[in-house]
Amino acid sequence: MTDILKKEIITLAESKEILEKVKPDDMDQIQRWTYDYVAKFAKNDPKTAREMVSRLVEECELKEEEAVEVINISPSSLEELRAFTFGWKKLILTETLQKMLNIIKTPNES
């Protein structure tokens, strides 16, 4: 059994980066499933994902957990983002939602 050294909220891209350091033959079944999932759904490189999380926390006053959720989902429209954030049970102004969308757009879409 491995001891937990540190607990940290990370994006899918960061999870993928960590799992890529493990040889596939050394992964257990859950690690392989997790790697397959993050390889398919991580939409950014780890550095960009972390920078976007920081910007969402600073500029949009999100909690780090919320910012990571937004980056992992990467909604592409205001309606999709609004539907996603509705579950947080806090009012987010349309201008803040628009700012969030601008932050999560990939460089190719800007």
Rank of each mutant, 00 (worst) to 15 (best):
K63S: 12
S76A: 11
E109S: 11
P46C: 04
E8V: 15
F84V: 07
T34A: 09
K89V: 09
W88D: 07
T48L: 13
K6T: 13
E66Y: 10
E66Q: 07
V70M: 06
E64C: 01
A83V: 06
R32S: 02
M27K: 01
D28P: 02
K23T: 11
V38D: 01
T85D: 08
Y35P: 00
Y37F: 09
I18E: 01
E14P: 11
I9Q: 13
F41I: 06
L78R: 11
E8Q: 13
D45Y: 07
K7T: 14
R55E: 15
F86Q: 15
R50Y: 05
N108Y: 03
Q98H: 04
V53S: 12
L78W: 07
T106V: 10
N102W: 03
S77C: 10
N102V: 04
L5T: 12
E58R: 13
N102A: 05
K7F: 11
P24S: 04
L12E: 09
T48A: 02
W33S: 12
S76Y: 02
E79L: 04
N108I: 13
E20H: 03
L93H: 07
K43D: 13
K43I: 06
I92G: 01
T85Q: 09
K40Q: 11
E59L: 00
K43A: 11
V68T: 11
I18R: 06
P107W: 13
T11M: 00
V53T: 11
